[in-house]
């Protein structure tokens, strides 16, 4: 592991999204503000509390996750697909970057973007709700890291696999967005029929949202250790898949 090579790739991935910061940082915040206004303001007056927490506050962790993980996913996936379109994939293959350096470099770029988006949306949420300090800093930070890490690793493997922009946007539209909305962001599991409750337990996004909600608000629908274990296992599996793809040159080499 050469730190210079890793840190250059990580910086390149961060520098790229910072150059278009209005698209990558401001746009998700504007979207989150719209959600707060509609769901927290208009609907929140009708749904007063969930598990003793005001509705506007209840939806904050889920909204943060929805926006930050989308951005974490887009960072490596768009970077790789742009490289394929512009013919600059050789910029990744010609330097002596190891599989570990590539995996960590892309992961760092996506996580940094996801965490910056998270921070900005939490700051906006603080204005709407007045809540600033998380309930459990350790769980809060770990869940943010795991959630953004999982979606960055997912974005990287999708970027490696994809041949067109449609592959990336299709996955985002048909998999990530439904998974996020059905991951108990805007409601409690108790509000669902029994079958839907059981199905939700197979949705990885549910554990990310529930774990982060515990870290931020101190309430959870399943024991937080299950959220941490499920998220940790998914993270490790995706990390291994990324490492394997870079090591073998799967869908990257000619």
């Amino acid at each position: 592991m050469n730190f210079k090579r890793y840190s250059t790739l990580a910086w390149k991935e961060c520098y790229r999204f910072l150059k278009v910061w209005t698209q990558t940082l401001i746009s998700p915040v504007i979207i989150a503000v719209m959600y707060f206004a509609v769901f927290g303001g208009a609907l929140g007056s009708r749904i007063t509390e969930i598990n003793g927490i005001p509705y506007a506050l209840f939806i904050v962790p889920g909204l943060v996750l929805l926006q930050s993980t989308t951005n974490a996913f887009m960072n490596p996936s768009s970077s790789l697909i742009i490289m394929k379109y512009s013919g600059t994939l050789s910029d990744l293959l010609l330097p002596p970057l190891s599989a570990l350096e590539k995996t960590l470099g892309y992961m760092t770029g996506g996580i940094v973007r996801g965490l910056l988006v998270s921070t900005l949306i939490f700051a906006v949420a603080a204005v709407f709700t007045g809540k600033i300090v998380p309930h459990d800093w350790g769980v809060f930070l770990l869940m943010l890291f795991l959630a953004n890490g999982i979606f960055t690793l997912l974005g990287t493997i999708l970027g490696i696999w994809a041949k067109t922009f449609d592959h990336i946007s299709g996955f985002s539209t048909f998999v990530i967005t439904p998974m996020g909305f059905l991951g108990a962001i805007f409601y409690s599991l108790e509000m669902l029929p029994p079958l839907a409750q059981k199905l939700s337990l197979f949705n990885p996004f549910f554990y990310l949202a529930d774990g982060l909600r515990y870290g931020f608000l101190g309430i959870a629908e399943v024991d937080v250790k299950y959220s941490l274990i499920a998220s940790g296992v998914i993270f490790l599996l995706l990390f291994a898949a990324n490492f394997w793809a870079f090591r073998t040159g799967w869908r990257l080499k000619l």
């Binding site: 050469n2 150059k19 512009s86 330097p95 002596p96």
Partner: peptide, 29 residues
Amino acid sequence: GIVEQEVNFDPFFTPMEILRLRRGLFGLP
């Protein structure tokens, strides 16, 4: 050092930035 046949470069960056990144990706100061 490979000069490829196809002209390709990262459109986000300037020539100096491209060269600095290139050196770093090769692990050089």
